[in-house]
Design a protein around this nucleic acid. Structure first.
Lengths: 210, 210
DNA sequence: AAGCGTTTGTGAAAATATTCACAAATTTAG
DNA sequence: CTAAATTTGTGAATATTTTCACAAACGCTT
């Protein structure tokens, strides 16, 4: 969470930048060259002023009276997010969900590649063939160090999550996308993003019923 | 997002209530009868004052000098979230991810049941047997109305997402858990929770590299 | 029952985030 | 070239969320 030198960009803004990037990609597919903050904001589901403020955190890219160049803005946001180079990612916990995530196409399209998967039972019979190797947990530390892996997807059962997270961190992982339904305790310099599907549903449930 | 009810509880608080509920469940499993806001907050990864403020939105449940009764607080939060009764949920889009979600055990444990799945190609060969029926899209409106389904999980390709969402809404769905990587346009009274895995990774990537 | 130590509940303050309002810059039309 | 029409960028104003600070309430011990 340290960002020496440059302005510190709020986490929420970073989230929205990712959304803008996707909207821009669609505009590009439709051969649209320029877009106003109003149009882009609408596509992203935010207010135009918010979009402009978000961009203002790291530069000024628009042309007054005209809008933004779609291609240029894409590149600038991409640069800022650091998504220009392919990131190696590993996945730990090849159960139901893990198996689906490994073969999820959405990742590679966005510059991430799951290079290997790990599981306590690597040889267990699984419903699906995947192109990545499934390795045992003993191979984890070596692999992380050897391939300089910084990011991991954690989809192990709740009971094992903290222990596995500790292993990951000790071996050098600093970013964890956590699908386990527990709150991980991690050092300050390690970033955890939680995705808890049950909570998302519960949340929906609340707001639709009152 | 508008809430006509008397106690307007922020969305973020609702999120955290779900987290507290899970922490309390673990305390219960360990036969712990009471817990202080400090201990519970630590388990949930928040500050004690935030926990107390969150609870204050809908009541006062603690005993000064002692803390909270684990069982009682669980019930109170559960009541507030409305998770006490089993909610029927449908899933649309039985691809890679959809298939995993249908068989994900985390949902039922939390009071949700995926009662049916729908897909444009219901009879396509799939890697996995599931207990729910996979129906064609033509059966969607009828099913929703007949079973009074209010919540849906949307895991169709981006290109189809908006059209399917429209169908869902027209048939009576008011809460959508959206896994498609696009921003859905929906009426005010429909709630959408987005889960975008690529964005989560991108977000991580940003914060670990700086 | 009185005093001590603990922990809640909550107004007030601080920190963040969003929205407004409008000048400045630029395009487009005539 | 000039004027009208857009649309950005941003300081100021709001709104929201988090944190602080501390009185009040309770259990426990003696």
């Amino acid at each position: 969470m340290k960002k020496a030198g440059r302005p510190v960009i709020p986490r929420k803004t970073i989230y929205r930048l990712s959304i803008y990037l996707r909207c821009l990609a669609r505009l590009r597919e439709n051969d649209i060259g320029t877009v106003s903050s109003e149009a882009l904001a609408k596509a992203a589901g935010v207010k135009p002023t918010q979009l402009r403020k978000d961009l203002a955190y790291f530069g000024t890219f628009g042309t007054r009276g005209l809008g933004y160049d779609v291609k240029e803005l894409s590149v600038k946001i991409s640069d800022e997010l650091g998504t220009t180079s392919l990131q190696p990612v590993i996945l730990v916990g090849v159960g139901n969900l893990g198996l689906a995530l490994v073969s999820y196409r959405g990742f590679e399209k966005e510059g991430f590649e799951i290079v290997a998967a790990f599981d306590a039972e690597p040889n267990r019979k699984r419903d699906k063939q995947i192109k990545q190797p499934i390795l045992g947990m003993d191979a984890l530390p070596g692999f992380i160090r050897e391939h300089a892996v910084k990011m991991a997807i954690l989809s192990v059962p709740a009971a094992a999550a903290q222990a596995v997270a500790n292993q990951l961190i000790e071996s050098g992982v600093t970013g964890i996308l956590n699908f386990s339904p527990i709150v991980l305790a991690v050092p300050e310099d390690v970033m955890v993003n939680n995705v808890n599907l049950a909570i998302e549903l519960e949340n929906l449930s609340y707001f639709i019923h009152g």
